[in-house]
């Protein structure tokens, strides 16, 4: 039905190419805002890959969190820290060799981990993961990790509010 190339479906190939192109552009472009926007393309590509794998929840959450929040946060950070105007950043850092080694090592470790964790035989059918199923298991099996994450995030939120509060005490003393 869906045309395949090298055993991979065409939609997958298109989305993968888009994702990789976005990632490469994010690494190579000189203008920081362009990098951030390219990164957004990568995020979108990842979301589409999840959807392609019929993981609706993961895909939509990827969109909501990464495109809606993280990408916006990145561009905000860029605009608020330095002038995002001039391309004054060199794309190649002086210790590129170290970076290359680190990247290769990370890739090797990830490859090792992924290949190790692959089941011996391919699953006969993809498990039907519904959004409701995810919700139920989050609220029953994984309720403890969920609550811990919730507390962590609350603490981070309160911390951020305290950091951002005007230092009224100091002003009062002066």
């Amino acid at each position: 039905m869906i045309p395949t190339v090298f055993g991979l479906t065409l939609p997958f190939l298109i989305i993968a190419a888009l994702t990789i192109a976005g990632a490469v552009a994010a690494a190579l472009l000189r203008n920081l805002v362009h990098c951030a926007l390219s990164l957004t393309i990568t995020f979108a590509g990842l979301a589409l890959l999840y959807l392609n794998l019929e993981a609706q929840f993961a895909g939509f959450v990827q969109m909501l969190v990464y495109i809606g929040a993280v990408a916006i946060l990145v561009v905000f950070a860029i605009l608020l820290t330095r002038g995002a105007g001039m391309p004054e950043y060199r794309s190649y850092s002086s210790n590129w060799l170290l970076g290359l080694i680190l990247a290769a090592a990370t890739f090797a470790v990830l490859t090792w981990a992924v290949t190790r964790s692959l089941p011996a035989t391919a699953a006969s059918a993809a498990p039907a993961v519904t959004v409701q199923g995810i919700g139920v298991s989050l609220m029953t099996t994984y309720v403890m990790p969920l609550e811990i994450v919730a507390i962590l995030l609350t603490v981070a939120l309160i911390g951020a509010v305290i950091v951002a509060m005007p230092e009224s005490k100091k002003e009062g003393q002066q």
């Binding site: 979301a47 939509f60 959450v61 909501l64 495109i67 916006i72």
Partner: peptide
């Protein structure tokens, strides 16, 4: 979709990016 509402809000979040662009 099973997660239609989530889809709508996910898509709605990406309009912010175009405004920023």
């Amino acid at each position: 979709m099973d997660a239609g509402l989530l889809f709508f809000f996910a898509i709605g979040a990406s309009t912010e990016l175009s405004v920023f662009m």
